[in-house]
Design a protein around this nucleic acid. Structure first.
Lengths: 294, 294
DNA sequence: GGTGACAATAGGTTTTATCTATACGAAGGA
DNA sequence: TCCTTCGTATAGATAAAACCTATTGTCACC
């Protein structure tokens, strides 16, 4: 048996045809046909039912192909291990973050990452939390910045920092002159929220315990910047994480006042999450250094 | 990369030498050396530090070899899948059972198994429960008859039958004329038990709640038959599962009376346990049929 | 300095994978 | 029914690779 042969099997399953599989593997159709036939003979079972019409995979075939996929994946892992050993801080690295964090965090970390790991081809992915978790699991991204808690057997997690919430109100809002705010003050109808799927929306709802009261609102913003503009326009108030406030946390900006909460200050805890089986853990270590030194 | 090359790696790790590995793989030493060298070159990393004294595996080497083992295991699985597809009821099958069950159950199932699966090379393994579980996990046996509950993610389990306990006493024992017995009657010092590690010992202790009282006993039998002989000799009484009583459950035998317990009658539940990843599940199905029709 | 153990190298042979060209078989259209 | 098309199988030649034996190189030990 040969690794190449197993790749042929996967290609046939994928393309549904010997000729197309051959093309995909950059070999001639007779070569691929011959190798598959030899494999079938050596195993003593038929993997494909051939006809000029279509290729049907036998029951054993499906099982064999499932195992073949695992073999190929592990072989690729060997390649990746070798690559990482040559230079653990080089190659492609895909880092994800959810939108209400990514917008404000990513700009500040590109430079330091580039300085610290010049050979790393960094790919930044901005998606909602669930999508990031899915992509982490399927290996489409290598690590993600997520709001904790994230509970999953196959992940490793490093707590990075707390991001406290403030209440963003227009400077002439009735709450604007308060120096601190209690959570009960949020029981108002003019609280603006993001659309479904944003973790910040869920956190805000949890903080405000407004589940029922808010269902009737028919406006759902798609970004925090939209919310900010609406606060500025006097449409309502919103929760704003400090990371989204810009540099001057204690001064008003753009006619908006960011009022801190009374203790216990509501917050979101940001952590770095990656698969236990990830190979380039050296990159993770560097990322943690950069993200905790902020 | 080639599956054969990965086997070379494992052989070198195993034998600690290129020449011995070559011998183990039935190739010449230069062949193996050459292939390993080529593999190292294609991966761009050194897997072994060579010297005339000893072979040292590099850090990447260890990782690569760990992956190589997974690849080989999965490749062997492909072979096994094919074999099972040709004839699912043929080949070697290793069935385990713990001693106090095996002695009485095994003799009765060899014939039916042989009749029903004539091409199956059945290997019967009699070991204590913990050893059977270890061997199941490591693939040294294919299935085991165990006293439930057995809780493990990687196992599948089929409940087979209940095996009720009776109290075995000498016919002239003071309890011998009772037709039924309560569990409190067991608070006696002459209860004989098996040595540590037998699940029957633990079950007996649990039933009697005699943990403390029994620690001082310095006699621990190694088999149920020894216990039976001692009961017959008048040394004491013991718990005996019905399966060990022979065919005549309601008559005395050998000067021993087997007294049933009052409800709820204490029992052990016997189940068939196998790895979820086992390939020859057709054999499992047949075994279940045979073992539940008893 | 000689010896033994072990890995690396050299050169030739065998095996295997691959190619192009062609045959075969089924389905669809004239 | 015949012809074309699409797809797989077969044949024969070529290129690549894995393998062998013989030999060299290297290090430790006596």
């Amino acid at each position: 048996m040969n690794i190449r042969d197993l790749k042929y099997l996967l290609a046939i399953k994928e393309t549904g045809s010997f000729s197309r599989a051959a093309k995909q593997c950059y070999v001639s159709q007779p070569t691929l046909s011959g190798q598959v036939k030899k494999l079938e003979e050596s195993l003593g079972v038929r993997i494909f039912e051939r006809s000029s019409k279509q290729i049907i995979i036998t029951a054993v075939g499906e099982q064999i192909i499932a195992s073949a996929m695992k073999v190929i994946a592990e072989v690729e892992r060997i390649d990746a291990l070798a690559d990482a050993a040559i230079d653990p801080l080089s190659g492609r690295f895909r880092l994800g973050a959810f939108p209400t964090l990514a917008t404000y965090l990513f700009p500040g970390i590109v430079m330091p990452i580039n300085t610290c790991m010049p050979d790393l081809k960094l790919i930044l992915v901005e998606e909602k939390t669930q999508s990031l978790i899915d992509k982490l699991k399927s290996g489409q991204i290598d690590a993600a910045l997520l709001a904790l808690p994230v509970v999953d057997e196959q992940f490793k997690i490093k707590v990075l920092f707390d991001d406290y919430f403030r209440l963003a109100v227009k400077t002439d809002h009735k709450l604007a002159n308060k120096s601190e705010i209690g959570q009960t003050s949020l029981l108002s109808k003019d609280l603006l929220l993001l659309e479904e799927g944003h973790c910040l929306r869920d956190q805000a709802l949890e903080i405000c315990s407004l589940m029922g009261a808010n269902e009737e609102q028919d406006f759902r913003a798609t970004s925090l910047e939209t919310l900010r503009l609406m606060v500025k326009a006097g449409t309502g108030i919103t929760l704003m994480p400090e990371i989204a406030m810009g540099l001057n946390k204690d001064r008003d900006e753009d006619g908006i006042r960011y009022i801190p909460f009374k203790e216990p200050r509501p917050k979101r805890t940001i952590g770095l999450v990656w698969r236990k089986t990830l190979i380039k853990t050296a990159v993770i270590d560097e990322l943690i250094k950069i993200l905790t030194h902020k």
